[in-house]
Write a protein that binds this DNA or RNA. Structure first.
Lengths: 152, 152
DNA sequence: GTGAATAGTTCGAAAGTCGAACCATTAGGA
DNA sequence: TCCTAATGGTTCGACTTTCGAACTATTCAC
């Protein structure tokens, strides 16, 4: 398989193009009252209904102490609220407020529009094949990272 | 096409997984003497052999005045050097040094390893189909962003 | 119970970012 | 040919973001 190398290069490049478009969506959604980082946090929480601080900080690859400050600000802006867990009173759950959900939803809608456009450039069977293969690829990427994240 | 919506959701999610792995590669490569931003700059220059300041700043979506500082630091670390253009003496080209090229190469190699792994989870015809479709999708995403970037 | 581990917060220092003012150079007319 | 406008970078000061270390509160484990 001599051209695996060439394919790998192209794959990386093309995925770069796609993700840069998703990033563009993010910066467009964030423009105005939210910073990009704040938007990412709203998304992270929105995807999971609620999050504990450590989860958000891991997802964003940021120190927990940094999170405290950002969540403070998001609380001031009325997008999230903190809630102490009653079972384990060390834990703080961060939850989107109505306003926060609205911001998240509108960002998701922007994403969705892009995703739809991308899929619409394919016929139905191509869509299915593409999703199936993408799933496979994501799995094998996860395995690779998993097996390497020990000796970072 | 009632389930285009469901497919779009899955597509977005799966692409997220993949890109988060690529991001992980970046932070792993940067760990130590380089910040993530600095690594991105090295990559940006490495991809093009050389860059003028404005190009890098546009690519990283950062003010040119910010670039000056980062490039200063990269110069101190011996990864890049500045070179005035003789034709147009306003222009500064930023070029990777040998050390800078090494850093870039090692990062590229990390990317490639992940790309290869992902492709290896597919048989040869799947690889070709996947690349073909990904290309299509990237094109249509570019069109969509293009047509929307005016009224941001 | 006591000591270790875990979840968050606070605090000060360091790094990163921006816009405005600036210098140097080039381009484009009267 | 000047004179002005535009372009490419840098410098500077203010502001924001980020981090790690020290700390509090709570839970776990023996």
């Amino acid at each position: 398989m001599p051209d695996l190398e060439a394919k790998a290069i192209e794959l990386k490049k093309t995925l770069d193009v796609i993700t840069s478009h998703f990033q563009w969506i993010n910066s467009a959604s964030a423009s105005g009252e939210l910073s990009l980082q704040e938007l990412k946090i709203v998304n992270c929480i929105g995807q999971r209904e609620s999050c504990i601080m450590r989860e958000v900080s891991e997802h964003l690859q940021v120190a927990v102490s940094t999170m405290t400050g950002i969540i403070d600000k998001l609380e001031d802006k009325g997008l999230v609220r903190r809630e102490r867990n009653d079972e384990d009173r060390r834990i703080v759950r961060v939850i989107l407020t109505g306003k926060g959900r609205k911001v998240h939803q509108s960002n998701v809608e922007n994403y969705m529009e892009l995703s739809r456009r991308m899929l619409q450039s394919l016929n139905e069977s191509e869509q299915d094949v593409y999703l199936e293969i993408t799933r496979k690829i994501a799995r094998s990427a996860a395995q690779y990272i998993e097996s390497n994240s020990g000796n970072q």
